[in-house]
Design a protein around this nucleic acid. Sequence first.
DNA 1: GCCAACGTTGGC
DNA 2: GCCAACGTTGGC
Length: 158
Amino acid sequence: MKNYWLMKAEPAEASIDDVLAMPNATVPWTGVRNYQARNFMRDAMQVGDGVLFYHSSCAEPGIVGLARVASGAYTDPTQFDAQSPYFDAASKAEAPRWMLVDVQVLHKTRNLTLPELRQDPELQALTVLKKGNRLSITPVEAHHWRTILLRLGHVDSV
DNA sequence: GCCAACGTTGGC
DNA sequence: GCCAACGTTGGC
């Protein structure tokens, strides 16, 4: 059964336009260093799952595109790269700590902004809107996915 | 830059 | 296993 996710990207690092410019509009989702988020990628994601591409830590946070999970989970190479900001000295090659999946952008959308999401009566329970939420990857309920696609005018993709 | 909220670390 | 201290996230 297909699952749905919201994945946060910092546009200063990898914006939706950056990803669209990559081969196949696909990016390895490097840099997740939170166990809960890692577990979603490692244990729950499947190729073809729907992804809401979200811009965070920027002037206008919000959902800016639709994407899909494009690979199974594999070892995040940046954890072994001493030059990378995501280097993890405690992670050993024989037991890698961090995993990632590839994400393929399918459509850039208008920015469905955080204030819009917050004021939407049908999205009150959306995980990313919950107080104190800091997870960079959160599950999205199917009915929330449908509502968001409706708001974005992507009914045909539902 | 501030700060609320939450995760991680490490001493005990 | 507890919990205080510290670090990070991310909106504002």
